[in-house]
C-alpha cells in the first residue's frame, strides 16, 4: 500500500450489490486533499451507497478504496479517526437535547468531561444553536437539525468530511447558510466530499464534480467542463396574450436563429440561448411587433438535461411514478430553477 497525503480519497472499481441490484457498479473517485468534491446524481444513483462504503458504514463487495492512504477495509478504525459523516437524514439522537448530543459524541471521541462540555458550548455557538441547546430535538427545524448534525461531525476536526445531500429539503435561506458553513470548513483545511441532486450546489461549492448514474461515474471534471458538455442555458418567455405565440416563435427564429418550443396552454415559449447579448435584440423585436412579455426567465441546464446529454436517458427514468419531468416542463420561477424534483 502506498502512502499518500495528496489524495484524501482514492477509490477504484467500488462495487456494492443489494440482492440483484448493483447499487454501485465500479465507481472510481480521486479526491485531492483540501478540495471540495461533488458527487452529483439523482435518487438511487448510488451516491449514498458510495459514501457509506468510504465512511466504513458498509462493506464493499468489490474494488479498493483508501482515505489518506489508509485502506477502508483493512484499517477501518484509522479511517474513522480521519472522517466526519453527515448523513442525508440527521444522525443525531432525537431523545437527547443538542448539548447532550454533542457532549455524548465528544466523549465518544475521547474528550474528557470538561473538554466535552467546552467543545459543545463552542460548537453550539458557532452553529447558532445556543438558544436551542436545551430544547428537545423534536422541536428542531430541519435546518437546525442539519446544523447540529454537521456540528457533531466536526468535534474531532476531521481532515475529511462526508456530506450526504447536506441541503436536500432545506429552504433557500438555510441552504445558503449551509453553503457558507461548508465554504468556511474548506478554508480551515478540511477536504469535503459531498453528494447532491442539485447542479447549482455542485457548481457553487465543488472544485470537481463526478456525475454518477445507475452506479457508475458517467462524467467527471470541473463545473465548467461539465456544463460545456451539457450545452447552454435556455430562455423562457411567458406572453400576455397566448395568441401571439406563433408570431413570437418567428421573432425568435429571426433574431436568435433557433427553433423555439411552445407551450400554448401556458402561453410559454422556450428557446436555447447561447449568446445572452442577443436577448436585448429579441426583446426590442418583440416590442416592435407589439408582443407583450409577462415574464422572462433564464433557465440553467437542469440535472435532467445533464443526464439526458450524458446518458441518453432522463434522471427520472427509473421512477415509475414519474416525478422528474424538469426537462420537458421547466417551471418559470424567478431567475434560475436548476432543481430536479424527484419522488423519494
Amino acid at each position: 500500500m502506498t502512502y499518500s497525503s495528496d489524495w484524501a480519497v482514492e477509490a477504484h472499481g467500488l462495487v456494492k450489490v443489494f440482492g440483484d441490484n448493483r447499487a454501485v457498479d465500479g465507481v472510481d473517485l480521486s479526491v485531492r486533499t483540501g478540495t471540495v468534491y461533488g458527487v452529483l446524481g439523482p435518487n438511487g444513483a448510488g451516491k449514498t451507497t458510495t459514501i457509506r462504503m468510504l465512511a466504513t458504514l458498509l462493506k464493499p463487495d468489490g474494488g479498493e478504496a483508501t482515505v489518506f492512504g489508509h485502506d477502508i477495509r483493512r484499517e477501518p478504525q484509522i479511517v474513522r479517526q480521519l472522517i466526519g459523516v453527515t448523513g442525508q437524514y440527521a444522525s443525531v439522537d432525537e431523545t437527547l437535547s443538542a448539548t447532550e448530543n454533542l457532549v455524548l459524541f465528544s466523549r465518544l471521541n475521547g474528550l474528557s468531561r470538561a473538554d466535552a462540555r467546552r467543545k459543545s458550548t463552542e460548537l453550539l455557538e458557532e452553529f447558532g444553536l445556543t438558544e436551542a441547546a436545551k430544547r428537545p430535538l423534536k422541536k428542531f427545524s430541519g435546518g437546525m437539525r442539519r446544523r447540529l448534525d454537521l456540528a457533531a461531525s466536526l468535534i474531532s476536526q476531521p481532515p475529511l468530511i462526508f456530506l450526504d445531500e447536506p441541503t436536500t429539503g432545506l429552504d433557500p435561506r438555510t441552504r445558503a447558510q449551509m453553503w457558507d458553513t461548508i465554504r468556511r470548513l474548506v478554508s480551515t483545511g478540511s477536504t469535503v466530499l459531498l453528494t447532491t441532486q442539485y447542479l447549482d450546489e455542485a457548481d457553487q461549492l465543488a472544485d470537481r464534480i463526478a456525475v454518477i448514474d445507475r452506479g457508475i461515474v458517467v462524467a467527471e471534471g470541473t463545473a465548467g467542463e461539465l456544463k460545456a458538455s451539457v450545452g447552454s442555458a435556455s430562455l423562457l418567455l411567458r406572453l400576455a396574450d397566448p395568441a401571439a405565440l406563433e408570431r413570437a416563435r418567428h421573432a425568435v427564429l429571426d433574431v436568435l436563429g433557433v427553433e423555439a418550443m411552445l407551450t400554448p396552454e401556458a402561453g410559454r415559449i422556450t428557446a436555447p440561448m447561447s449568446d445572452p447579448d442577443s436577448i436585448t435584440d429579441l426583446l426590442i423585436r418583440l416590442r416592435a411587433d407589439g408582443i407583450a412579455v409577462e415574464e422572462l426567465a433564464v433557465q440553467q441546464p437542469t440535472l435532467d438535461e445533464v443526464f439526458l446529454a450524458l446518458t441518453g436517458h432522463t434522471a427520472g427514468d427509473d421512477e415509475p411514478s414519474g416525478g422528474a419531468t424538469g426537462a420537458e416542463n421547466p417551471t418559470p420561477a424567478s431567475g434560475t430553477t436548476p432543481e430536479l424534483e424527484t419522488t423519494r
Partner: peptide, 27 residues
C-alpha cells in the same frame, strides 16, 4: 453560525498519530 470557525485549523491526515485497534480501557 458565526465566523469563529476560522480559528480552528485542521491537522492534516498525514500528520496524525492513529491506531487501528481499540484498547479494553477505551471499550
Amino acid at each position: 453560525m458565526s465566523a469563529s470557525m476560522s480559528t480552528l485549523t485542521i491537522t492534516p491526515g498525514a500528520q496524525r498519530t492513529l491506531k487501528n485497534h481499540v484498547t479494553i480501557a477505551q471499550t
